[in-house]
Design a protein around this nucleic acid. Structure first.
Length: 327
DNA sequence: AAATAGCGCAACCGCGCGATA
DNA sequence: ATATCGCGCGGTTGCGCTATT
């Protein structure tokens, strides 16, 4: 049964808000605060539905809103978060103080989408539009290539998120690279209920187990940093670590329902390899894996990435797509 | 100057979810 | 167990401004 619009049902005002209406709503909320939205219109003397009032407050009247153009940093962050979260505008907005989901959504649809297309990047997949077909055709020519295994898609992470490191930097990547930290926090916030390990207001330094990812010297992360992986089990409500490269709950293999929701590669110039932390979900459990790769993330090198033994074993059923980014 | 097209943005709509009766 | 309500979210619409013809 189709629902009636709340406004139509109650014969309430629709359309643009007048300055008088804005003033009434603003005065009411600043005086009494946000409570039950359905009762706000009546109490504030407005011929609007509660939903309309809520939207007007959130998207326009709220005093903490940041007005004006998006900065380059905000733009970069939106693109980065969209790559990880997709069209989850509310989640994206939660990482941009003063910006609303509606604002970001509009900005994306009217501006960023076109910008990416212009750069030859598919705004949905964040993949180079041409390269996708090239990858497909080249992968058909080499049967030994890891990515040619038909179940494995070409990686969607074509560039390391954490890619530029200032020389002599001694700061943890979690602390210095905002997009990474934001993504990491966002993901953990999603997969772990806030009361278990992390508060939604957690700071970067409080992130579990990755706090020891301190940079040893300029631009190098020790491979020891990656000797432990973290597993989160929504069943056991426990956070554990393991020296194994791959953590899979209950010894079950990763199946086609597993989706990597993010990957974060670093250079390790000691052995000229590259590591990636990939997050995945399986049967209600969430985990993080280490993936080893080559020193350069060009197209050819991406194809030659080899999985650790554990992970390779885990993918014996041949259906795990390490780089799939959709949750 | 008028008509039209394109664009950005504010607001609406419908759906899903959780809380409550 | 079911119905209802309130809220939040993402998709869509349509208004109004500006540029172009």
């Amino acid at each position: 049964m189709a629902r009636h619009s709340c406004c139509a049902k109650q014969k309430l005002r629709k359309g643009l808000w007048s300055p008088e209406e804005d003033e009434k709503l603003y005065n009411y909320i600043t005086r009494f605060g946000v409570g039950c939205w359905s009762s706000v219109p009546k109490l504030a003397g407005l011929q609007r539905c509660g939903k309309s009032c809520r939207l007007r407050w959130i998207n326009y009247l709220r005093p903490d809103l940041k007005r004006g153009m998006f900065s380059q940093e905000e733009e970069d962050l939106i693109i980065h978060l969209h790559k990880i979260l997709g069209n989850r505008w509310a989640q994206i907005a939660s990482q941009l103080p003063g910006r609303t989901d509606n604002e970001i959504k509009n900005f994306w649809n009217s501006c960023l989408k076109k910008k990416l297309m212009k750069q030859g990047i598919d705004p949905q997949t964040h993949q180079p539009i041409i390269t996708q077909s090239q990858n497909f055709s080249s992968s058909n020519n080499n049967s030994n290539n890891y990515y040619e295994h038909q179940q494995f898609k070409t990686p969607t992470v074509t560039q390391p998120i954490f890619q530029e490191v200032p020389e002599n930097n001694t700061t943890s990547p979690l602390k210095m690279h905002q997009p990474f930290a934001v993504s990491y926090q966002s993901i953990l916030r999603d997969i772990i209920s806030p009361n278990q390990y992390l508060q939604t207001s957690m700071s970067v330094s409080e992130l579990p187990s990755l706090e020891n990812l301190e940079r040893e010297n300029c631009g190098i992360l020790s491979s020891e940093c990656f000797s432990q992986s973290i597993m989160f089990s929504t069943e056991s409500k426990e956070c554990s670590t393991s020296s194994s490269n791959t953590i899979i709950n209950n010894n079950s293999s990763i199946n086609s329902n597993s989706n990597t929701i993010a990957g974060f590669p670093w250079d390790n110039s000691d052995d000229h390899s590259k590591y990636e932390l990939g997050f995945f979900e399986q049967s209600g459990n969430y985990g993080m894996i280490k993936i080893e790769g080559s020193s350069s993330w060009g197209e050819e090198q991406l194809k030659s990435i080899s999985l650790s033994d554990d992970l390779t074993a885990a993918t014996d059923d041949g259906s795990f797509d390490v780089f799939l980014q959709h949750m």
